[in-house]
Simulated scan of single mutants.
Amino acid sequence: MKLCWLGHSGFLLECGGKRILIDPFVQGNSMFPGSLANEIKNPDYILITHGHGDHLGDSIGLYNPDVTKIISNFEICNWLISQSVNNCIHMNIGGSFYENEIQFTMVEAIHSSSIDSGNQVIYGGLAAGFIIKYKDVSIYHFGDTEIFENMKLIEKNYRPNIGLIPIGDRFTMSPYTAASACNEYFNFNVVIPMHYGTFPMINGSPDTFIEKINNKDSAKVLNPGEFLSI
């Protein structure tokens, strides 16, 4: 398996011969590596954690009806269908979808969710995180979230060994609370900070996160466009 950070909360995951995009925010993402423009075309799956424009992002533009399945919550999928995106897997918190030996599970996040659609702001359902499990690897993309005590149940039930965690502050956990979540609730082999540095207001520092995390060897700061074998 290989994982690549696309800047902000976006990731490209390659596993089982399939290509998975998570929160593919490209247009307006100053951190997106242009060299990967072709790599992200025609993905097998697109996972959307919530409806905000920096997470729903370029999902419609990257969707290929002959190849791609979009996985998101009920409300976002219904909106996507209204935009002629028909191959959408409706989910909700706690549910799983299995295909090609990959398990996709939607888990709780504490955050808002809405969709800007023309002049309308549409309810985007509950924000979520995702567990992506393939063979012995379990990846937890936190989405946008505050720290919450039920994270201990995510650890108990899914045992994620790779964590993709927001540290930017203002809209999500800060480096301090993200480190506290890792220290209190999880046993990650690798934890990758995300959702920072894209805009001036999300200025949480990965150096601070590493300083506060107990298992410093688990922290891996990726450059946008950098691949990590997991």
Rank of each mutant, 00 (worst) to 15 (best):
V26K: 08
V121A: 06
N64S: 13
S174E: 03
T49Y: 02
Y123G: 07
S82R: 12
Y123S: 09
S180T: 10
L80K: 03
K156Q: 15
D136H: 12
V67K: 15
T145W: 01
E146N: 03
N29R: 07
Y98M: 12
F97H: 14
P200D: 05
E149V: 14
E101D: 15
I46S: 00
G17A: 13
N42K: 15
R170M: 06
S114E: 11
L56K: 04
I40Q: 05
E155D: 14
S72Q: 01
I48Q: 02
T68C: 04
Q83G: 00
M151Q: 14
V26W: 11
R170I: 10
M91I: 04
P65A: 03
P175C: 07
G125Q: 04
N223R: 10
E149F: 14
S114I: 03
I89D: 03
G7P: 09
E14W: 05
G129D: 06
N78T: 08
H141T: 04
G125H: 03
H55F: 11
S59A: 14
I71Y: 00
M151Y: 13
K18I: 10
I213Y: 06
E39P: 07
Y140N: 07
F11Y: 15
I202Q: 11
I202E: 14
K133F: 07
I154G: 10
F32S: 09
V26Q: 08
V26M: 10
I122R: 04
E226Q: 15
H195V: 12
F171E: 01
G204C: 03
S205D: 11
M194P: 02
P160L: 15
F97E: 06
G168D: 07
I167L: 01
